[in-house]
Design a binder for these strands. Structure first.
Lengths: 180, 180
DNA sequence: ATCTCAATCTTGACAGTGTCAATATAAGGC
DNA sequence: GCCTTATATTGACACTGTCAAGATTGAGAT
């Protein structure tokens, strides 16, 4: 229903109707509409985390190729699940309402993971070691996040450009290094 | 009201009440709530465009410094007007509803401007000339957009990091070049 | 088998929201 | 003075999330 109607189109009443239950039955399983959305977003983080793990497990790939693949997969994950991505990182949960403790427990480690990978890539010479690790991971993540949002919101970029944009971003991240 | 209550908190009825007029009076001036939001967003583009122009008019700055300033100003503009920025680039207008023709007439040239500046900076050696101009401008803008949104939505970054993040991003953009 | 208690579900209601239709008022040009 | 146009208003409709009070169910203990 999230995929079809979008995050704003998802109404508790229509959802209850579709399940064949009364409007307020949902309140015995979730505190809020917000709590329901947080639970969905939570699943999104778990799934993405699992997908990311498979990248790093591929021994055949060089470190630079892993970075490239990571960027590509991130953008495609967002582009393939636009509504879910919006839920995971959008203002609906993070600004407007408050994220559940359960959601935070899943999301924050995911952010932390990004920082650790950045540190590792810096040590390997894939990312520039001169930059502060935290700032660099904020910027690289910001780049992926920004591209994902431009795609999702349909501003100024569309699906057919994804591969080229990822390639370009990866170049920017790694252009300092001699090892390609 | 947008600044105080946020984009979702802005209701036509409360707005009409605050102005001291009846609920539907607004419909004689704007087709929709969406049309009103588009008009506000439009102003946001005009103001940002004006601010950007002043950067490029400063002859005292080198080209690299202009890029740095451009990035900084963009992020601060977003951070200082979070609700407005959300309106300008958020899904509320671009995905969920449809942007007005008037808004498109202001927004698209703004995107185009970004591409032209990218091309110019490539020729000047500030940005890498090896990348396709369109892709590069999508990625650089994506970076700024992404950082802006992480800040606005309060995810994983806050105001006190802005300067350092901008510096880091500028480094990434320009690290290829020998002229610093 | 019965009682108990907790989980689950339901209906009724309330305060919001955007929006349309029909109606009223005011102002300006001839 | 009249007519047109712009503007404002009230009533109503279909939605939304959410709460309170009551109904139903089912499993475990006695």
């Amino acid at each position: 229903m999230l995929q079809e109607m979008g995050i704003e189109g998802l109404s508790l009443r229509k959802l209850a109707d579709a399940v064949g239950v009364s409007r307020t039955a949902l309140y015995h399983h979730f505190k809020d509409k917000n709590a329901l959305l947080c639970a969905i977003a939570e699943q999104g983080f778990v799934r993405w985390r699992a997908q990311a793990e498979t990248i790093f497990a591929q021994d055949a790939l060089s470190n630079t190729e892993k970075l490239r693949q990571f960027v590509r997969d991130y953008i495609y994950y967002a582009a393939d699940n636009p509504q879910l991505y919006e839920l995971m990182f959008g203002r609906t949960i993070w600004k407007n309402a408050q994220p559940t403790d359960e959601l935070k427990a899943v999301a924050y480690p995911s952010f932390q993971h990004q920082v650790e990978m950045t540190r590792k890539w810096q040590k390997l010479g894939v990312l520039p070691a001169t930059e502060d690790t935290l700032r660099l991971s904020q910027v690289t993540w910001g780049t992926m996040h920004g591209i994902a949002r431009l795609l999702i919101d349909g501003i100024y970029a569309d699906r057919s450009h994804i591969d080229e944009m990822c390639e370009c971003a990866t170049h920017l991240f790694t252009q300092h290094s001699t090892l390609k």
